[in-house]
C-alpha cells in the first residue's frame, strides 16, 4: 500500500508540473490572441502605418522581418553547413576540434544584445553598411550560426558510419561520399534545424536594435542598404514610444500575434519535412 501511495504522489507531482507548463503556454497564446485579434484585418496585414501609428497596418514590419530573416539565412546557412561538414567529416578528431566545438557552443550562449553591439561596431561602422537590412541580416546570421552548425552536425552524425564505409570501399573519394551519401541523408535533419532557427531569429529584437531597425517607415525598404521596420522591434517601439498608448498597445498585440503565427507556421513546416523524410526511410 505504501509503495502504491508514493507512486501516486510521484505521478501527481509530475502531472502538476506538466499542467503548469501547459497553463503558461496556453495563457500566453490566449492572451495574445484575445488582445491581438481585435486589430486583425486584411488592411492590418497589407497597409502601411497611418495616423502616427494608431491606424493602418504593419505590412512594412512584416516585410522587414521576412527580409531580415531571409538575409540572415542566405548568409548563415551555407556557412554553417560548410562548417559542420568540416568539423564532422574532415577535421581530425582531437584537442583543437574539441576547443572549436566548445567555442561554438559558447557562442550560442552569448546574449543577443552583445551580438547587436558587435554588429553595430563591425557592419554598421567598420564596413560602413550603415543601419540597414544588410547589417541586420549579417548580425542575425552570426547569432544563428552556432544553432545551424550544431543542428547540421547532429544531422551529419546521425548518418550511419556504415554508409560512409560502404561508399569509400567502392572506390569513392571522401568528397564524393560526402556529396552523394552523407549530405542527402542528412539533408532533412539540416533543413529542420535551419527552419527552427528561422523561427528563433524572426523574433530577435536586440541584434537588430542598432543595426537595422527603425520605428517608422513610410513604405517598404527599397534596397538592402535601407533601414527596415521589423515586427519584434515594432512591438517594443509601440509599447515604449508614441503618444497614443491605448491604440498602440492593441496594435502591438496584433504584431505579437502575427509573429506567433509566423513562428508556428515555420515550426509546423519543419515537422512536416521531418515526417516526410521518415516515411521515405522506413
Amino acid at each position: 500500500m505504501k509503495k502504491r501511495f508514493s507512486q501516486r504522489i510521484g505521478f501527481g507531482i509530475l502531472w502538476l508540473c506538466m499542467a503548469a507548463t501547459l497553463f503558461f503556454l496556453g495563457s500566453i497564446i490566449y492572451f495574445i490572441v484575445v488582445r491581438g485579434a481585435g486589430v486583425f484585418s486584411w488592411q492590418f496585414l497589407t497597409d502601411v502605418p497611418r495616423k502616427s501609428m494608431t491606424a493602418g497596418g504593419v505590412a512594412p514590419a512584416i516585410a522587414g522581418t521576412v527580409y531580415l530573416t531571409m538575409g540572415a539565412m542566405v548568409f548563415a546557412l551555407p556557412l554553417g553547413i560548410a562548417c559542420a561538414i568540416y568539423l564532422n567529416e574532415y577535421s581530425p578528431r582531437g584537442f583543437i576540434v574539441n576547443i572549436i566545438r566548445m567555442s561554438i557552443n559558447n557562442l550560442a550562449g552569448v546574449p543577443s544584445v552583445v551580438f547587436g553591439l558587435f554588429g553595430l561596431a563591425l557592419f554598421v561602422k567598420s564596413f560602413k553598411f550603415g543601419v540597414s537590412i544588410l547589417s541586420g541580416s549579417l548580425t542575425l546570421g552570426i547569432l544563428v550560426l552556432p544553432l545551424i552548425i550544431s543542428a547540421a552536425q547532429e544531422a551529419l552524425m546521425a548518418v550511419p558510419q556504415s554508409l560512409r564505409e560502404a561508399s569509400l570501399a567502392l572506390g569513392a573519394t571522401h568528397w564524393q561520399t560526402i556529396k552523394r551519401i552523407v549530405l542527402p541523408n542528412a539533408l532533412s535533419g539540416i533543413l529542420t534545424g535551419a527552419i527552427l532557427s528561422i523561427g528563433r531569429i524572426a523574433g530577435e529584437t536586440a541584434p537588430i536594435l542598432f543595426t537595422a531597425a527603425t520605428f517608422y517607415n513610410r513604405g517598404f525598404p527599397k534596397s538592402i542598404f535601407d533601414e527596415a521596420m521589423a515586427l519584434p522591434y515594432h512591438i517594443y517601439a509601440l509599447m515604449t514610444e508614441g503618444t497614443h498608448p491605448d491604440q498602440q498597445t492593441a496594435i502591438a498585440y496584433g504584431c505579437a500575434l502575427i509573429l506567433l503565427l509566423l513562428v508556428l507556421a515555420i515550426s509546423a513546416s519543419a515537422i512536416i519535412i521531418r515526417q516526410r523524410q521518415r516515411r521515405f526511410h522506413a
Binding site: 554508409l163 560502404a166 561508399s167 572506390g171 569513392a172
Partner: peptide, 28 residues
C-alpha cells in the same frame, strides 16, 4: 579499394533504389 572490394558485417545498402546502389560504384 576499386581492386579490393569489401562486404561488411551488417548489410549496408544506401537508402537509394536497387539500381542506384549497384550503379553508384560505377558513377563515382
Amino acid at each position: 579499394r576499386r581492386s579490393v572490394g569489401m562486404v561488411f558485417q551488417k548489410p549496408n545498402p544506401f537508402p537509394k533504389t536497387i539500381f542506384e546502389n549497384i550503379s553508384y560504384g560505377l558513377t563515382v
